[in-house]
Design a protein around this nucleic acid. Structure first.
Lengths: 158, 158
DNA sequence: GCAAGAACGTCAGTATACTGACGAGTTGAC
DNA sequence: GTCAACTCGTCAGTATACTGACGTTCTTGC
């Protein structure tokens, strides 16, 4: 219970990198359970949420909003389009761009998902004492903002 | 700056699930930069670290140590074996099991990686005020331990 | 107005990470 | 002892997530 941060220890369970990987897995599992009936993934939901706020975003801008690679974003959109919740069209102004929109079906599904989605996020941090949850989220935010800009994938609009 | 935890907000950047996914990506990027010359991944390193502590572990037990699926563990071991840092042999006691060991080359590489590995973990949480790093790690640990046991992948030996 | 550079989307390739299913092997209830 | 239940490793399939490379299209410097 020492306050000293011992990164060099042998156990994986004191290493922040290992813990973050594991917590990410756990969040995915919680999400999949909460949102089971929709058959979506966390990233697909993030894409739809961004498109609700900013309809007609091109793929690179969408990628930057979520912190995903252009390639991954394109693949996610392909799957969402196949399900009929997203549609893409070419930009008349810039023929390089493909603009993405939620379909009415997509907007309806997203609205219906809201409760389950909130529950997933809440459940993830529920084991923390209530008074410490806000600080944990602030710590996460700070680390994401500070380390943003590693490699090709960068978040815009922090 | 309210202490109230607003999970229901529109912005992705206040959602712990989103932040954890993004922080995991960031850790991978930091790791890959620090350990570039070894050409390894975070998970491959975790496997090797466990095998250093517990030589001759079977694949399912190894999976449980790291919190990985059996299938993923098998694939990671195949890649490590191909590189010559791990070897597998069948158990004479239980013919279902394949026991994994570090090769001398693997042990040597792992020893050589230690500094870079420590640097990656340290860099991940470096942006936090020094006094708050231990608490952040405690929060991560608590959430991982509390939510352990979601789905097929479970950590043993917490 | 045009050549150099940059940006967009895509492709191929690779690595985690999961599910469901399966055969081979072991264990336990009786 | 036998057979049902379980376990281990693997396979096929799918979803994130990255890199390097490429053709197309736009922007900029001049």
């Amino acid at each position: 219970m020492s306050d000293d941060v011992k990164i060099e220890g042998e156990s994986l369970f004191r290493r922040p990198g290992f813990l973050v990987r594991r917590l990410h897995q756990i969040y995915v599992a919680i999400y999949l359970k909460e949102c089971e009936r929709f058959g979506t993934t966390p990233v697909q939901t993030s894409v739809m949420q961004v498109l609700r706020m900013k309809p007609g975003l091109d793929q690179a801008a969408l990628a930057a909003e979520i912190g995903m690679d252009r390639t991954t974003t394109s693949n996610v959109l392909t799957r969402l389009e196949k399900r009929g919740v997203v549609r893409r069209e070419e930009s008349p102004k810039d023929r390089r761009l493909r603009l993405a929109f939620l379909t009415p079906e997509g907007a309806a599904m997203l609205a219906e998902m809201q409760t389950a989605l909130d529950a997933a996020h809440t459940r993830l941090i529920a084991p923390l004492p209530a008074a410490e949850r806000a600080q944990f989220i602030r710590h996460l935010s700070l680390l994401v903002e500070s380390n943003n800009g590693m490699g090709r994938t960068v978040l815009r609009n922090l």
